[in-house]
Design a protein around this nucleic acid. Structure first.
Lengths: 204, 204
DNA sequence: GTGTACCGATACGATTGAGTATCGGTACAC
DNA sequence: GTGTACCGATACTCAATCGTATCGGTACAC
């Protein structure tokens, strides 16, 4: 809040460039993502965000030039690795843990992907931000889990099912709400891993 | 099949109730679905459809009361079972055939689902039409395939992987474009079935 | 105390699209 | 020939939203 007074020579400009604190920014970002999840990208309005965060439209347009840029910034700021730090020493257990973690985020993430699904085809920056925020980090983490399993010799490196695991996890996560009207909760995903993924890999 | 929709105070209506022939109607429906796939639901305008089919907005509003009703009608008219008639006598082969068929439709279907993904949460009729057109028929057909396999004794009725097969097929279909930027073509899906689905079921 | 720079409120311009209304033209029934 | 009912064109109403501009207020620098 009080200026980070240990900056460079241009401290004045740097510290007072914007009066919007990181907390305040997170508020904006949280509001816009909530709105997107709830109403869809097209239905979100800058006026609505301004009203719900009790700031003015001017502020939003001053900080971020346009609506897609604003949403993209919110996505990037929300970037997080859902299953970081999973490393139990066993591939099967890692996959179960990953399933559980993915299930825990499933409601919010799926809604976001769903809501942005189309907007993404119209704005390249938005598409990029979505990939960076919700797709690539998780896929990379999953591949890392698989890589370690291979390295430990739990499964052969050229096992044909390996390549499909990320798509399976991702797909089932997104598909269940459509098919069954229920979110893919942790239990569902763990059962899926045990019933389909592990057997396909030849694990227990 | 005949163009008679919901409207008839009986009468000679059968012959001249609407001058719109079934062919003409298919033109409208084709145009609107193409537009939806290409630009998304929100970006589709009744004016645009009218212009691209060289009819007048009045005609569209006379036949279908509102935009969502129009799109829903188009979806229902487009209803088709992608893998009807698959029955090779072997579960593994049936699943391969289903994968091939699903892959063949994947580009158009996935775009449609993607484009309507959000609109569907705002209009119940649209949601219903989408389910009826692109989700339920295929799931039902797939379950029928599985049922026959169970009946033939190829796989036990309570095999835990069975329940996840529809979600997997559907999910992988929708997930690949997001993860790899490529459509899930028939070869990809067949490989998936052979690498992951059949092994999980304990089929060669 | 004075200046600067950002904030919030609000008004504004411009565009766009849904849905309605009007009107002339025309195919078919009788 | 006359009537009916639908079609296409077009003008219109109404509402929403993007993005800009204006203006007063205020926190901080000096």
């Amino acid at each position: 809040m009080t200026s980070q007074a240990a900056d460079g020579p241009e401290t004045v400009a740097a510290s007072r460039r914007s009066k919007i604190t990181p907390e305040r920014e997170r508020e904006f970002f949280g509001a816009v993502l909530d709105q997107v999840r709830e109403c869809g990208y097209d239905s979100v309005t800058m006026e609505g965000i301004a009203a719900s965060t009790r700031c003015s439209k001017s502020t939003l347009y001053r900080q971020w030039r346009t609506k897609p840029q604003f949403v993209a910034a919110a996505l990037r700021a929300n970037r997080r690795v859902r299953f970081a730090g999973i490393d139990s020493g066993s591939l099967a257990e890692d996959l179960r843990l990953a399933a559980r973690a993915a299930g825990a985020w499933s409601t919010k993430d799926t809604k976001l992907v769903q809501a942005l699904g189309h907007a993404v085809t119209q704005d390249a920056e938005l598409a990029c931000a979505l990939r960076e925020a919700l797709v690539e980090p998780e896929i990379a983490a999953l591949e890392e889990i698989l890589r370690r399993g291979v390295e430990r010799g739990e499964v052969p490196a050229d096992h044909p099912a390996l390549a499909y695991i990320p798509a399976q996890m991702f797909g089932v996560l997104r598909a269940r709400p459509v098919l069954e009207g229920k979110d893919a909760d942790p239990e569902y995903l763990v059962c899926f891993v045990e019933a389909a993924v592990l057997p396909a890999l030849g694990l227990t």
